[in-house]
């Protein structure tokens, strides 16, 4: 496996956009892994949080955008609370989701969920999911 990198790949428009939207300085990350160690969802992710930051640092934004991880992150902010460099990874995953959502690509299709189940759900669950997963 090898990756060829160059200036404009590392600082591609997609990378710049994600950094701007999230307001996070990914370059201050020194890969201690505290986020991954404390994230309750690591087990459900294909790319752990520290690796998300790493891949953005080296311009591999496509891999991150396609990852399952950004859709299982619950914005619980444990990573942010623990990060020694104060990086809010929840804001990063939000920016990554928005990258899709702002192109009108929804992640959630309510019609695929049984009607009975929908009726049971509290309003906050529905509104929260719609805001996080749909355009």
């Amino acid at each position: 496996m090898q990756l060829v990198i160059w200036r404009s790949k590392i600082h591609s428009p997609e990378v710049e956009k994600i950094i701007e939207l999230s307001g996070q300085n990914v370059y201050s990350c020194y890969q201690c892994g505290m986020c991954t160690a404390s994230c309750p969802s690591t087990g459900n992710m294909d790319i752990p949080p520290n690796m998300i930051v790493r891949l953005i640092q080296i311009g591999m934004i496509g891999k991150v955008l396609d990852s399952r991880s950004i859709w299982v992150c619950t914005s619980c902010f444990t990573c942010f609370a623990e990060c020694p460099k104060g990086i809010d990874i929840a804001s990063l995953t939000e920016a990554l989701r928005l990258y899709h959502l702002r192109r009108n690509i929804d992640h959630l299709n309510l019609s695929s969920i049984p009607h009975g189940e929908l009726l049971e759900l509290p309003v906050i669950a529905m509104v929260g999911a719609l805001r996080k997963f749909t355009a």
């Binding site: 969802s41 299982v72 619950t74 619980c76 959630l108 906050i124 669950a125 929260g128 997963f133």
Partner: peptide, 9 residues
């Protein structure tokens, strides 16, 4: 975390 709104999908 309890999983929050992931409870929907």
């Amino acid at each position: 975390c309890c999983g929050a709104y992931l409870t929907v999908n």
